[in-house]
Simulated scan of single mutants.
Amino acid sequence: MSKQLRQSVQEIEISGIRKFNTRVAGIPDMIKLTLGEPDFPTPMHVKQAAIEAINNDFTNYTPNAGTPELLQAASAYFHDKYDLSYSTNEIIVTVGATEAINVALQTILEAGDEVLLPDPIYPGYEPLIHLMEAKAIKIDTTETAFKLTAEQLRASITPKTKALILPYPSNPTGVTLTLEELEQIAEVVRETGIFVIADEIYSELTFFGTHTSIATMIREQTIVINGLSKSHAMIGWRIGFLMAPEAITSQMIKVHQYSVTCASSISQKAAEEALVHGKDDAVQMRTEYNTRAGFVQDRLTKMGFSIIEPDGAFYFFAKLPDSVPQNSFDWAIELAEVAKVAVVPGSSFSEKGDRYFRLSFAASFSQLAEAMDRMHTFMEKYA
């Protein structure tokens, strides 16, 4: 029967994050620092808007791109936040940022195209590229503080290069790009004519300064992806946004339509409330994440882990000390079984990740404190 199934589908795998999380899920008394989702509840005013939508029977299809009210709210929100100028016909409401990524790639890629990825990177891009019969080209950033440089980008572009995927702040590293670094990357993109798919889902969780979208520099070549999962703790509501010039969105809407028709009507009403009356909902979360990051970084550093300080999101991509003989997968399994703390092996994000692991600090302070105590005890044998 497998011979009758599409070969490229059989060649991709469930993400290493999910596989590892499933592997350790049955261990009792586990502190899970694995999945990337806020531990805060969705704001009450957002939930109330959804309840009202249900009570008002707002349960039919919406226009494919989203309700006019939500599109207008998104246009205003992203302009106010990041100086992005997209009209309502240049925005598509998607089923989370994941669908947005898929729609963008399906729209621009042909078989044989190359897509550049800074490595390490979230594992959700490469399988989609493979399904488009295109090729993912990894650019190693482990020697450049997890930051893609303009020089690396220029050296990686070939006649087959169609796009660069640029996620910042980054999952799994938490690192973002400065204005000067973005300008240098934008200049290379401008000269070479490739697309940038800017995944800015963690933009509101930038700890230092204000997030800058590369679309303000090279608008005609940029597809912006954002959403409400991280900024408003709306993971399960599945609301993302695709933003691009109309020449691009007029083509992307076809892929979106035949994929999902439209995003949930109830979720769209909740999203409208989030954007209009919850512009600063992320402030409390961002402040708390930054505080947690400082605490966890201090504890991990004292245990001997090498860390590059995150600029945002809620992750550390930490390097194992030389005294640890195992690779990160075997070490993480032992950590889960012995210390009852779950982190994600770095190999889930990078071919060079065998000596790294991702730790999510999107957990309560009490959980983090207990996890650090357990890890400290566990690491004593490597001292």
Rank of each mutant, 00 (worst) to 15 (best):
residue 245 P to T: 11
residue 158 T to H: 07
residue 58 F to N: 04
residue 305 F to I: 02
residue 368 L to C: 08
residue 81 K to G: 10
residue 317 F to E: 01
residue 301 T to W: 06
residue 48 Q to S: 12
residue 69 E to K: 09
residue 76 A to W: 06
residue 5 L to W: 13
residue 275 L to T: 13
residue 333 I to L: 13
residue 7 Q to L: 15
residue 92 I to A: 08
residue 31 I to C: 05
residue 136 A to Y: 02
residue 200 E to G: 01
residue 339 A to E: 03
residue 26 G to E: 10
residue 143 E to A: 13
residue 188 V to S: 08
residue 375 M to K: 02
residue 80 D to H: 15
residue 95 V to P: 03
residue 298 D to E: 14
residue 36 G to E: 09
residue 148 L to G: 02
residue 60 N to A: 10
residue 363 A to M: 01
residue 69 E to S: 04
residue 161 T to Y: 04
residue 191 E to G: 09
residue 218 I to Y: 05
residue 102 N to Q: 13
residue 6 R to E: 14
residue 228 L to K: 00
residue 352 K to A: 07
residue 347 S to Y: 02
residue 71 L to K: 09
residue 238 R to P: 09
residue 95 V to H: 11
residue 87 S to W: 01
residue 192 T to C: 03
residue 279 K to A: 15
residue 153 L to M: 10
residue 154 R to P: 03
residue 3 K to D: 11
residue 179 L to D: 05
residue 205 L to T: 10
residue 76 A to E: 15
residue 365 F to H: 00
residue 134 A to W: 06
residue 115 V to N: 00
residue 223 I to F: 12
residue 257 Q to T: 15
residue 115 V to T: 05
residue 294 G to N: 07
residue 368 L to V: 08
residue 371 A to N: 08
residue 125 Y to M: 11
residue 149 T to K: 04
residue 373 D to W: 05
